[in-house]
Design a protein around this nucleic acid. Structure first.
Lengths: 342, 342
DNA sequence: CACATCTGGGGCAAACTACGTCCCACAATA
DNA sequence: TATTGTGGGACGTAGTTTGCCCCAGATGTG
């Protein structure tokens, strides 16, 4: 029974983190083998001794082997990873994922165990899961449009695959915004492209510039970029709460008041949505809008944290993503909202 | 999937012990509540600080509550224990148990996780599971015949239930044997009886005395006892390897040679069986024999350790127990033997 | 009422484990 | 041969667990 594992976890919640680390270790070793401790530390963002400790245990269990040129999986380790089906995550919340998939009319719903708002390991798992999903979805010759934001920056960071897709084109889905370079759509696009040895394009305009102010000189580049957006095969974006996003972006009091008056609860792709998914405000006109959005066949939304449940539901209704990647608490929260008839 | 849990365990084998302890702790608290740390330590045979540590964790998880008069389960704890269905054990090897039950034509097969030969916690779980099974099977007014041996002594030790069955009668299934009083059938019977506040009877004759040597004076008591054996409702006994049992009992070289020549692999109830279950030697005639055995409706056999697989299979074929309580390694070993056509 | 016995909680030193941080010999590679 | 990466070993320390004792309070008992 699936149930068994859920009940078992109620007895030993700590073990999820341990298991997750071991799973990711095995996965990383499979991907990079033969590989040494230090390389793994960097990849896993864990202290050397922790990796060493876990690796020693996994070796004792017979799941991996040490060799002078590095570690690699034993046959048993390969078999285990194979049986786990590349998805350690799905072990825990398959029924919930299936329920959301059906009720929200989604192609894929992936639920990562834990609470990403409180557990860094869970956050990383969310990013990693998204990265893997993207790697699974993109094909050479496609166009991938990526949004910015802290979540997307995290996803980009976890993008470490040695697939070479030289004809993949990664473009930012929006312009520049705020001061933190790490979370710009441009940065995300560049990092993702690098991970696939792919091409990318940058957009050197602030997000909130009115289209008519664009100098004629850059109109060509701009149109080229908009053309890419319209022909994009995949769009990936994060979801935020309206209140936190508005605060973070320092909206003027006037706009803020109008947002709340209109019942904005969610932000995604520069739009603010109310509960029912109606866009009540748009940050700018530069980039994906809700009409071009419909042309993108694969729309991947990512979010984590129980407090985002309402926002996610709103964005699902307003922006109709085809795939949703969540953490467990967010998924559970959405389940509750659906149960209560919202 | 049941499978999920098995694979999960391959990632974190240590946690099984932790989970087992927590489960037993919850179970004990349910049984004894309100109960304090020290009483629990004694019952669980764990150091005070270990109990305290685990209890603190369980409290943090909201599974139990502290009160000035002791700990008790929270509603969530009760619910969890309820959902686990009184059988933490069955979580792990349900399919194997069902397979053995079918192939060996058994009423019940219970498999305790782990290797009781290597893990003391697993040994105790085996004893505890047997104790619970017996408690579940006996009714007031019944006669329970118990064998001796180290395994049975362990079972008796774990017999801590506050059920009162004043008309239950517990009798030793055989006479005295060796020097260790703790593992005598008499001792086991007395302890089990005490646990149920039941009556018991002792048999003050060595196991290997020929029946015709019994003094006339005690013939009455002897016949009374034999009568009890014949009318017994439940018989519980352990299973041993022929070689280790023969060595432990210090059989003379002559007998030993004959045993091996006849292919003895198992010992139970004073009989030595070969692979196919044919009794090739009997230690004495005092007590249950294979004909009276057939009259006992419930015959419960207990054993643990991978090295006992062959012995268990032989005893199953020779003594036809109705219930079999094993540890995981023994069960797996039997599975292999059956697969290989034995 | 007093006594005995239990409870959870606190404290604290000892023991232990895990960790960070080195260095080293060796193997592969270029 | 020089370089780079590997696993393994060593060692001091930080953090945690453990064993053990004491305490105030609750509870049941005579």
């Amino acid at each position: 029974m699936q149930n068994m594992l859920a009940q078992f976890r109620r007895l030993c919640p700590e073990m999820v983190d341990v298991a997750r680390i071991r799973y990711e270790l095995l996965e990383a070793i499979q991907l990079m083998s033969p590989v040494g401790r230090r390389a793994l530390c960097e990849h896993m963002e864990l202290p050397e001794r922790a990796v060493r400790g876990e690796a020693d245990r996994l070796k004792e269990m017979g799941l991996l082997e040490y060799a002078p040129d590095g570690m690699r999986l034993s046959d048993e380790g390969k078999a285990l990873l194979d049986e786990l089906g590349g998805g350690f995550d799905t072990m825990f919340s398959e029924p919930l994922a299936e329920r959301l998939r059906r009720d929200l009319n989604m192609h894929h719903v992936l639920i990562v165990p834990g609470d990403s708002a409180r557990n860094p390991l869970s956050t990383r798992a969310l990013h990693r899961r998204t990265a893997r999903y993207l790697a699974q979805v993109v094909r050479d010759g496609m166009i991938l449009a990526a949004m910015g934001g802290s979540t997307m920056a995290g996803v980009a960071k976890q993008m470490e695959y040695n697939r070479r897709l030289p004809n993949l084109l990664v473009v930012p889905a929006r312009g520049g915004m705020g001061e933190d370079v790490e979370i710009q759509a441009n940065t995300v696009a560049a990092k993702v492209a690098a991970a696939f040895s792919a091409r990318h394009r940058l957009l050197h305009w602030p997000d909130d510039i009115p289209t008519e102010l664009l100098p004629a000189s850059s109109e060509g580049k701009f149109n080229e970029w908009m053309d890419c957006i319209r022909r994009a095969n995949v769009l990936v974006f994060g979801i935020g709460r309206a209140d936190t996003m508005a605060r973070r972006r320092g909206l003027i009091a006037d706009t803020l008041a109008r947002l709340y008056a209109n019942g904005a609860v969610a932000e995604a792709l520069g739009y603010y949505f109310d509960r029912s998914g109606i866009p009540v405000h748009v940050a700018s006109g530069l980039g994906v809008d809700l009409t071009t959005l419909g042309r993108v066949p694969q729309r991947v939304a990512v979010a984590g944290g129980a407090d985002k449940a309402e926002a996610i539901l709103a964005v699902v209704r307003g922006a109709h993503p085809t795939a949703l990647i969540l953490d467990e608490t967010a998924a559970a929260g959405i389940g509750v909202l659906l149960d209560s008839g919202q």
